[in-house]
Design a protein around this nucleic acid. Structure first.
Lengths: 344, 344
DNA sequence: CTCCGTTGTTAAATCGGATTAGCAAGTTGC
DNA sequence: GCAACTTGCTAATCCGATTTAACAACGGAG
């Protein structure tokens, strides 16, 4: 990419010292004795010439590229992506690291090929990420490497995992409902565990429901029913419409994702029921639509940004990585979809 | 990252030839004469040892890292991000390249710092991207470098731009309305040019409106009015509500983004008007919500994926980059929000 | 039989830094 | 006054490839 860069040799020449001295002066190492005078001359020369070290060259010798690879199944799809990457990137930048972002689209061969491409570039570590919290088996190329699992779990694979605290989120959803006075007429839409077509739900769905039921029970409240459905708007609409058509009159809906909530809103709207006047809704994820639905949706936020940030922070800590599961809290975004229970 | 890699020297040793011969055999160059026997031995040895070249080391000599930097103001926000990056990444992978993804958050200093970090790693080229089509002034560090501008324009900066063909999209929106029989009662929401608070609109908004008005005029149709507003759901709701409250009864709304459309849907719904029975809606962007709104929204898709792909393809073409503006078509996603005009 | 041109291969230099080993000059100790 | 340390710096190597220059071995021409 054009025009010769200033090298360390240039700096040394201008400062009137050897490249060795320049190297030590610039790296600021104290184990090699450099006089203050020399150090100052070198730093001065470097500044004047606008010297910047060639990271590629340095890596060859030091083995550290200050670069992290990020492999995910899919970065597009809504619930994940941008925020995770941004969080990871910010944390990386704070320590002068950069991220290679890649996506394998769920294809095992593509995944292996990408990991190779990353290793060929000598990345210091790899973040292996999934868009949905689930169990994974990382490609064999990653065995024995410095790896952090992001939003996924791999029993038997020796690496830390960073995942949202879904269990506690389920509890918080229940607490929010109890606090508003709801004790009956509560339905969960999109639980108990997701249908096979939605493997994304196997962990998140289970844990959210487990936390929800636990706290409702403790609070003396009852879950009137659980409707299983795919975690999308269409299914949410269909199932809630069916529920209403069957004569049920829920006072509160716990929708397992915002997409399902949006479908629920549509169904309630078409049935002439208002939120939260007739029916309260509490949800999970806090996607973009949550804030712009009318009324705005109260939901438990998936901590994408924190997830990405923590993954990188773990990697950049000195020493070996421990195979621990880190659970990141999902904060409650209180908006306008929960109200007092409608009069019986 | 652990365990010594197999080097070319290892391969040469096993094949019983010099590193030089191994290098030529592996790179498959024909300008240096290597016997078929030697070539075969080397390839065989490489395969047996699972040799993979160290891209970092190679780069030092060849100056080419097979790596592209991607700098954007923000990768999170909805309308952009994921798809662009995915398109760029796919195109890069097809030619054995990888992408450094970075985001400066609109901060000039951060931007410079990121560009430096990229150049320090010897990227072969940089994609300078904006989330909204707009005019930009790239940081001075990029002058004279191999750069492609993505979704932005920088007059005077010697680099190609890749942008959506907003003008033609505006024309297509008009054509879709005309085809359904609309000739009056047409309102544009979110045009003519965006308010100062929404700089994102200055290019997209202008061109969409220009194309729209041009074709409506040619088709003998009339634009009853243009409502300026921010390009978000809240403003869309507010402005369309106000429009209806003022006694207007539009037959068709051209919303300048899907977010505005969503607000329009909410306002129409609360006023008891149906889409497309009472009012047709045509929109721009094709964000995720477009497909799940009820009725599904007919909209002109922002070709994010193609944008990213083309940017990388331009970079990977041999030879210097020409400062040309490449306009990528915005395909019409016909769904269910346009119908015949309501009876007068 | 010598000279010259191919052919196939390798030694050595290079890329831009980091690191190891060693070398002068100045200090201290006795 | 001389050995033993320090201090401050540099020559030489190394990292893992690519690339240039040069060198044997062989065949054909004269």
């Amino acid at each position: 990419m054009s025009e010769r860069r200033v090298t360390m040799a240039d700096v040394a020449r201008r400062a009137g010292v050897s490249p060795t001295t320049a190297s030590f002066a610039l790296s600021g190492r104290t184990d090699m004795r450099i006089s203050d005078a020399s150090r100052k001359k070198v730093l001065e020369a470097a500044r004047e010439l606008g010297y910047r070290p060639n990271v590629t060259a340095r890596s060859l010798r030091t083995k550290s590229t200050q670069t992290i690879g990020f492999v995910s199944d899919r970065i597009t799809t809504t619930p994940f992506a941008g925020d995770v990457i941004r969080g990871a990137m910010e944390a990386a930048r704070e320590r002068d690291n950069l991220l290679f972002i890649t996506e394998a689209g769920g294809d095992r061969d593509a995944e292996s090929s990408l990991v190779h491409a990353l290793l060929d570039r000598q990345v210091d570590a790899v973040i292996y990420a999934s868009m949905f919290t689930r169990y994974v088996t990382p490609p064999k190329e990653l065995f024995g490497r410095r790896v952090v699992l992001l939003n996924c779990l791999a029993p038997g694979f020796d690496a830390p995992s960073v995942v949202p605290d879904e269990l506690e989120a389920g509890r918080d959803a229940a607490r929010a409902l109890l606090a508003a006075g709801h004790t009956e007429g509560i339905w969960a839409i999109g639980g108990h565990q997701a249908v096979p077509a939605t493997p994304e739900g196997i962990i998140a769905g289970n844990e959210r429901m487990r936390g929800l039921e636990e706290v409702l029970r403790e609070g003396g409240a009852r879950l009137d029913g659980v409707v299983e459905c795919d975690w999308d708007t269409r299914d949410g609409f269909r199932e809630v419409s069916a529920l209403l058509a069957a004569g049920h009159r829920p006072r509160a809906l716990v929708c397992l994702t915002d997409r399902v909530s949006m479908g629920a809103y549509q169904a309630l709207g078409e049935a002439g029921l208002s939120v939260p006047g007739d029916v309260s809704v509490v949800s999970f994820d806090d996607q973009d639509i949550a804030a712009v639905l009318r009324p705005a949706l109260t939901t438990l936020k998936l901590p994408h940004h924190q997830l990405g940030r923590l993954a990188v922070e773990l990697i950049l800590r000195r020493g070996p990585l421990e195979a621990v599961v880190h659970r990141v809290p999902m904060p409650l975004r209180e908006r306008a979809s929960i109200g007092a229970p409608a009069a019986g």
